[in-house]
Design a protein around this nucleic acid. Structure first.
Lengths: 190, 190, 190, 190
DNA sequence: CTCTAATCGAGACGGTACGTCGCGTCTTACG
DNA sequence: CGTAAGACGCGACGTACCGTCTCGATTAGAG
């Protein structure tokens, strides 16, 4: 009845500004590499005052992380179920590629525009959470290395796949992802 | 009569300046991330005039590439023999890790200081050369993807191994490198 | 029936806010120069909402004028009588210095904190009123110049006297004020 | 034969930039009050890069001081001789007003544009030098007060005189300056 | 042994982006 | 429904580094 929650109730203007900045960054990153995207350009594209950027993010990388995290969370939400229930890695890989395929422009921008590092960091973070949630037997592959390996290799594979621009279909991509990266790692822990 | 060849007989001062710039960059990259290393700082550390930098390299990245290429060429010289003669991937991996181990400070600087991208590019270039030299049967793994996969994954593994800082010895590292990255790729092409 | 007059019957809250702003400005001006006193700081020190400032004053200078005018009016009330009745300039000077002495912190803040300009303007305004009230014979000194001279010179002398910080007593200060500034001007008009 | 002097030999570009900044400030100060003169506007008017300003002056006030000091030094050079030889204060005053008259636009800009404070500071500095050079008997007027009094009162008088815009000629102005400010102070020290 | 020519250090310069700050307006949520 | 809190657009600030350039001193090679 009173206020819904101290966290939920946020000034509508804040939400609006944040959304505008997200969209602007994504739009700009499609036209030029990340380091050539000025903060001023972002704010202008977002229709927002220059200083307003800093009222929300301390740095360009921080905004990028936010944007990247959004994508990763959605991607994970789609692929983890397949993994969790039946250890069906191939199906999880398909889910991933399908999602990336659906968001082609965004992911191309993120991966080729200099945001690969941010994506990688997010994947590592997510991997860590997922790993922590499942029981885990020690194999020959150290856990922290496996996270970093998966993140780096997956980013590379996705970049390659996006650059292939349709010459490799989702099924083929999923097979490559599974055989080259996911399956070895999953197998290592059993 | 005059100069023996346009390539050889390089002015000693040029060599000296280049060497000084290489050394300065390596020294500085150990103290702070690459993007925080200003060209001014490099020239000061090298004991060289500011404008002199531009007489040798058009940009900071170019100098970095030079430095990275040096390292990669040496690393490759040590590891390819093992691969080439007996397809002994494990021995090649050992050779790689031994070399990196011997050059720890340099590689730590390169990999954690923001030069990973340059190293990766050099590895890809070298991989391409090596692949072109050997006969190759098409497997399930596209060649260009394999190059990028190897480069990215190897950079990641080496970074992790250097950060582990001795807690993983050369033999263990070589096994990981071989089982996780090299062997799968080599096997794919047979 | 409702409000007795537009001027009188002022909302008690308005008075309270104004007083709080006055006090806050005076307090802050003692700690740093006027231009370093932000409006935000004033409102925070006054315990008043930020926007509230603008409901009372269009600008920082306006508030300062209010504060300065208060002081000048009181100072004048004390010194004019002596002047008016017996042309006793020395006694008027003593009255002025005694008052300033009693309000040392306030005047020090006003004169050294960047409010000297406002004080000067107020003195000129008052001088004009006083002059207009008394009969006046043309001497060698133009009236408007005399006002500005008195204001500037008096502000300077008071600043100096306050900075001397007690090393010059009221009597000595009054003599200086009288001989250097007041007497010449008064004499000029006779 | 070698270099003329370590001080004299200054990079020609420095001189050029400084001169351009001086001229630009003087030009701009005639069109708007000092605090409305942006540093960017100065540099643009000077045809100089924005950052170049800070290579020469840490702040706008510092540039102003330079400009003011130039004027004061010239003014002093013209008026001191008359004072020095025959204690002819009237003639010195005439010299001052004649110089200001000749430089009307500059002085009007300086005195009404917000540079009065800088001018005052320069006059005080010069007064101190002049006083230190001549023998001095203690009178009823403290030396430091006399400097500040002269500076403030003279600035005020000059402002008034410039605003009178020709309705008071040099001779009359000189008489006022002499009788109201200079003579009393000079007399006090004898 | 001069005297010109090339080289190099030093660093000034025009730019451009940065991140900060204060202003004055205007919206928002809450009492 | 009025008011504090504060988000916002704006625009100047002073800093940093870029890559180009000019400058003057040093040195070398040619006459």
């Amino acid at each position: 009845m009173a206020s819904l929650s101290p966290l939920r109730r946020e000034d509508a203007r804040i939400t609006r500004s944040r959304r505008a900045l997200h969209a602007a960054l994504l739009a700009l990153i499609e036209t030029r590499p990340l380091e050539a995207v000025t903060i001023r350009a972002i704010t202008e594209a977002a229709g927002v005052g220059y200083a307003t950027f800093y009222r929300h993010y301390p740095t360009k990388a921080e905004l990028l992380n936010d944007v990247a995290a959004d994508q990763i969370r959605e991607l994970v939400g789609l692929s983890v179920p397949a993994l969790g229930t039946a250890h069906n890695t191939r199906e999880a890989c398909r889910a991933i590629l399908r999602y990336v395929d659906a968001q082609r422009p965004v992911w191309r921008a993120l991966l080729t525009g200099g945001a690969a590092r941010a994506i990688r960091a997010e994947i590592i973070a997510v991997s860590r959470e997922v790993t922590a949630a499942v029981p885990h037997r020690d194999g020959w592959l150290p856990t922290d290395l496996s996270h970093r390996f998966v993140a780096s290799a997956m980013v590379e594979l996705l970049s390659w796949w996006l650059e292939a621009d349709g010459r490799v279909d989702v099924e083929q991509g999923a097979e490559l992802l599974d055989r080259l990266i996911i399956a070895p790692v999953v197998a290592s822990g059993i």
